[in-house]
Nucleic acid binder design. Structure first.
Lengths: 198, 198
DNA sequence: GAGTCGTGTAAACAATTGCTGACTTGTGAA
DNA sequence: TTCACAAGTCAGCAATTGTTTACACGACTC
């Protein structure tokens, strides 16, 4: 039907179904949590058979790990040396308010809600550490410098604010926060990060 | 054995096992989430038989609702007319940092993480609305007054920060936030709430 | 002490879970 | 066209889930 791509839409395309599964899984895992999500739900969303999850990802945990990896890769923190404070604030707002291009805000929840799998938890911890240390560094934090120690705590609280907002928007429809646009959020969130780190 | 109370510790005390179940359930639900918690886990924690959950609470959902109710009752917001701004900030910090006496911080997560049950979700929404409106009112918010509209959004963000911090502390051991004391938190959180609402 | 009712236990139920094996079907090369 | 292998389907498994039923215990009244 569609003759757009050199490798046009085939009815059987392993890579395409792999991506479809990843997409459905990330959405389900982020929104409902790991335990509440069933592999049959994911397969149905993706429009494919359940057995393919085990074929392509080994297990439900393997699929979750793949989801987490994709999110982690897109969470590259702003480079400490060439990022201004205002850019960092804008970047955080963008991630929370669905204007970041890559990661959807919901996926951030993969980083903060435990799945029970220890290996995945380690990946999450490393990502959170890397990101918050970058934020703190932009604000002046130096590793092992007691004088700037408090900045790391404050960067983590800024991050926690982001998670809290995303969680609020994902699990309640309570306005105005649930329906706030990026423009609505940018002022208040900017105030928070500024109060914490400047 | 113990002869402390007029109604001393009986080996069979319905009210006591009810409370034990409630305690175990609140802890499990808050920490692991609704779906990841099994009734057998709860019963084992409480040291009683699984069947008693259904006898005393009807179902797993009924037990969850009972947990939620106990938390909701203890979430009475600060009275708008006789609470200063600083008292409100201190109250929020206390809830997050386990110095509130009543509700343990973890239990706050019952208010923000959906259980899938629509009736429980409605209770959660009502509680969140009541609490954030009280906070906003202390800061000057008036219902249906467009000039103060933004304060409600900002109160919700302040609340979200609290949830984010609790979630961070519950699902990672990442310091310094995970191991911060109430004294450590009070400064930064105070800054956040002030930046949002003053 | 006998009877009774509230409390607790044990075993099993049906449904759902993640997962597996044997199978069909489509696709592209020979 | 034929054929081989990847891609997808199907039915069923073992384990776990929430729940129920039938039974045993223990304390209290008479």
């Amino acid at each position: 039907m569609t003759t757009d791509s050199p490798v046009a839409s085939r009815s059987r395309d392993a890579e395409k179904t792999r991506q479809a599964l990843l997409e459905s899984a990330r959405s389900r895992f982020a929104h409902d949590g790991y335990a509440a999500t069933t592999v049959r739900d994911i397969a149905t969303d993706a429009g494919v058979n359940v057995a393919l999850i085990n074929r392509y990802f080994g297990s439900k945990e393997g699929l979750f790990a793949a989801c987490l990896n994709r999110t982690v890769e897109q969470m590259e923190p702003p480079a400490e040396s060439q990022t201004t404070f205002d850019q960092m604030v804008a970047s955080l707002v963008a991630r929370v308010a669905d204007q970041s291009g890559g990661v959807k805000p919901l996926e951030l929840l993969l980083l903060i809600r435990s799945s029970g799998d220890e290996k995945a938890d380690e990946i999450r911890r490393a990502t959170l550490t890397r990101y918050t240390e970058s934020m703190a560094a932009i604000a002046g934090w130096k590793r092992d410098d007691p004088a700037t120690e408090a900045l790391l705590l404050r960067a983590q609280i800024a991050m926690a604010t982001g998670f809290g907002i995303v969680l609020w928007r994902a699990s309640t429809e309570l306005g105005p926060l649930a329906s706030a646009s990026a423009a609505d959020l940018s002022g208040p969130v900017g105030d928070v990060v500024t109060a914490l780190l400047r």
